[in-house]
Design a protein around this nucleic acid. Structure first.
Length: 486
RNA sequence: CGGGACGUAGUGUAACGGUAACACGCCUGAUUCGGGUUCAGGAGAUUUUCCGGGUUCGAAUCCCGGCGUCCCGACCA
């Protein structure tokens, strides 16, 4: 039925997924390397995906009463250093400004790796009464973390994200916020990125520096490794204590506010590339594709046909645009057909309409799906209904495929021998009983490079009895997910 | 931060210590256009080979230092 046309110079995903990934990022026009190590220039096609991401999440945040704001990129070192665990966690990757205005600064300024400190300091001023709570803020901004080893989108020295910061009267209210944010992210990945993630609680050693609890979205990359793809933290009173975020309750008692923070970054785009891409390049889910449909005009012989085809393409373009489809037309007849098709496939446009002399005569268009290359011809009269429906089908099929891939890359084991051989021979997610001791986790990581990824939400209630830890044999408490991480 | 590789037109590569070359891309014109077509001509390195020193009659090439990038490890809320 459908043949996959190989791309010149594009490494096959199955041969070397890392080379393939880098090739796709560059060839699909998502991003390029910048002049500073580990930094990335996000090109229009990549940025457009980010804008789609922003639009969806931002809408949900606002519906819930979260307000956008902006705090400075610079944080005085003294402020940053106030919460001890926090500074210990972030110091190694901090970029610090020591000179400005031609002079050495009296106090160095940190470039934000996250904004808990500056924002909490202001919460102390803004929160006085229980009537001020909850206070929910968010900012879309850039972050700098000087990682030793970088990877386009997955781990860059500077990246874009949103960070939500909220304060609440008590733990219960804060936890509701933590779970709401987590659910937004899960829903976003499922319904917009068409990715089936794992959602759960991080272990104590893997949690955010300064948090009481961290929940995360974990994506299963097709090579069996894990990508932490969004986090939601319950900060308890760890920061509010340090910055004195106190309020008076109804009875006039002074109380410390409870706090949350949650974020999703441009790393998400890396997950999107990894999960759906194939040997022909990027594959975008229709929900977030900057262009959902490309109409390719196929020239016959001579300018006369070209003109007719171009007119016909314009006609179909309008039909689709009126039907609410994000559509782009390609009638650049100076380039050969193969070149144009390959280029649009690399870019990952979910649906291609081929329109030439044949279709013009029959008043049809040929529809080709990017995800499975299935091809069929349809009458123009049906396009306004059929194209949106087909885009939805593609969206659903991509999700199903992601779900199958995730499940196929997850296995349950109960013995250490099995655990170790799986992790060393074939990387994948392992679900196994664990004692929840940090020392045990550290040894597992040392021997297999795999750490805990999360305790799935629906397994938190499922407390084990008489089950030994997969590694140390001590009583296990829950079944956790383990994997090597990106 | 340890180990390795590398740095030459826009990109990818070549050049024994002796005239910096080739392919792709780009421009012009044809040709072709239902899956990266084919051909002809042209521009593009030029205080030329990342930067600074050195050796030499002569350095892209050898030596020293710096900077940077990539790969492998350690690290990575």
């Amino acid at each position: 039925m459908s043949k996959i046309f190989e791309k010149k110079g594009l490494t096959k995903k199955s041969e070397n997924i890392s080379d393939w990934y880098h090739d796709v990022v560059l060839r699909a026009g998502l991003a390029e390397y910048a002049d500073v190590k580990g930094c990335m220039i996000i090109k229009p096609h990549g940025y457009a995906i980010w804008e789609k991401t922003q639009a969806v999440l931002d809408g949900w945040f606002k519906e819930d009463g979260v307000q956008n704001c902006y705090f400075p990129i610079f944080i005085p070192m003294s402020l940053f250093e106030k919460e001890k665990e926090h500074v210990a966690g972030f110091s190694p990757e901090l970029a610090v400004v020591t000179h400005a205005g031609g002079e050495e600064l009296v106090e160095p300024i940190a470039v934000r790796p996250t904004s808990e400190t500056v924002i909490t300091k202001k919460f102390a001023d803004w929160v006085q009464s229980h009537r001020d709570l909850p206070m929910k803020l968010n900012q879309w901004c850039n972050i700098v973390r000087w990682e030793k080893r970088t990877y386009p989108f997955l781990r860059t020295s500077e990246f874009l994200w949103q960070e939500g910061h909220t304060v609440h009267s008590d733990k219960q209210d804060a936890m509701t916020m933590v779970m709401t944010a987590l659910e937004w992210y899960a829903k976003f990945y499922r319904e917009h990125y068409a990715i089936a993630p794992y959602v759960g609680l991080k272990s104590q050693s893997e949690k955010f520096a300064g948090a009481a609890e961290t929940y995360s979205i974990e994506i299963v990359v097709p090579d069996g490794k894990a990508l932490q793809s969004a986090t939601s933290h319950y900060l308890a009173d760890h920061f509010t204590k340090v910055f004195n975020v106190e309020y008076l309750d109804e009875a006039g008692n002074k109380k410390l506010a409870h706090q949350t923070s949650w974020g999703l970054s441009t790393r998400a785009i890396g997950g999107l590339i990894f999960v759906h891409g194939d040997d022909s390049g990027l594959v975008l889910p229709p929900a977030v594709a900057p262009q959902q449909v490309v109409i390719i005009g196929i020239a016959g012989k001579g300018p006369e046909i070209e003109e007719k085809v171009a007119t016909y393409v314009g006609y179909i373009h309008k039909i689709l645009k009126d039907a609410g489809v994000r559509v782009v037309s390609d009638v650049d007849f100076r380039k050969t057909l193969g070149f144009r098709i390959n280029d649009w496939e690399l870019k990952g446009v979910p649906l291609r309409l081929e329109v030439g002399g044949k279709e013009l005569e029959a008043k049809t268009a040929t529809l080709v799906r990017r995800d499975n290359f299935a091809k069929h011809e349809t009458s123009v009269d049906l396009l306004a209904l059929e194209v949106p429906a087909l885009l939805e089908t593609i969206q659903k099929d991509l999700f199903k495929k992601s779900e199958q891939s995730r499940d196929a890359l997850t296995t349950e084991v109960s013995t250490w021998t099995e655990f170790k051989s799986i992790m060393t021979e074939k990387k994948m997610f392992i679900r196994a009983p664990w004692c929840e001791e940090a020392s045990c986790e550290a040894i597992i990581k040392e021997e297999t490079k795999a750490g805990t990824r999360c305790l799935e939400l629906d397994r938190i209630q499922e407390v084990l009895s008489d089950t030994p830890c997969v590694h140390c044999g001590q009583p296990a408490i829950h079944k956790w997910l383990f994997a090597q991480a990106y």
